[in-house]
Amino acid sequence: MTTATATPRRTSGGSPVVVRRKTNWNRILYWVATHSLGVALGLMFTLPVIFVLLTAFMRSDQAMTASWWPREWHFENFVEVFDRAPMVTYLINSLTYSLLATLGILVSAIPAAYALAKLKWRGQTWAFMAVVAAMMLPPQVVIVPLFDMWVRMGLTGTLVPLIAPYFLFDAFSIFLLRQFFLTIPKDYLDAARIDGCSEWQVLTRVLVPMARPGIAAAAMFCFLFTWNDYFGPLLYTGEARDHWTLSLAIASFRGMHHVEWNLTMAATVLTMLPAIVLFVFAQKSFVKGITFTGVKG
């Protein structure tokens, strides 16, 4: 399945063979056009990020002013971020939240997505509908009763209210994984069933290995979402500084009347770094993962 499409993947989606054979000139023009467009897009997307980086090196009184090239380079801003806030604690909290949440969806969403995609049962459509409905409900709708519930459990001010839901029900992951699982041919699963595998074995020994790239993608979306989540940590750990996450800590460089933009941006860069590293490393399996969906069309 994957190997069959792996070969032609490098070639482009639309460049027709006919054009290629006509003239070399056309081909060069096409190459130049697409690549300059690509570079332009890359620049367009990167410029504001470069702006963040430049600001991170400025003195506080230059940051967010009309002059956007640092007059002096203050590399020590990054050190100051660590002096100013317990960044290591926040980093550990962020990692705890993101890693456990990711583990959570692996445990809870994979079986559910399997049942929704690959088993036939009554109420399946309704169950799927419920998943999509849950996803469509903005978080502001449910926070009041949920906050109340966690208060009564005495768990506000900890990371538990943030992590626990992922071990039970994360609509987005279930939905995404279901879409991936749908693309895996039924024949493989049936073959395993005929060999006497239980549904659990079909799931763990056949489906999970085959859908590993898709699962990697879902895991990464979950990691990145929780990594940048601001609303959740603000709500549940806002008063408990020891449990703050990095995304929340960035806001702490705001004073009563003044925002220290250079430090805010330095902290932003530091927060983005782990996510970028993760993306660069995960890119292959991640993109391959989604590729799977495309194959089936």
């Binding site: 906050f147 208060v151 709500l235 806002g238 008063e239 500084r241 702490s252 705001r254």
Partner: peptide, 18 residues
């Protein structure tokens, strides 16, 4: 003394009984 606690967070802490 805990800084950076805005009015929204204050309301939440009172609601939470903490």
């Amino acid at each position: 003394h805990q800084g950076n606690q805005d009015d929204d967070k204050l309301t939440q802490s009172i609601q939470a009984g903490n």
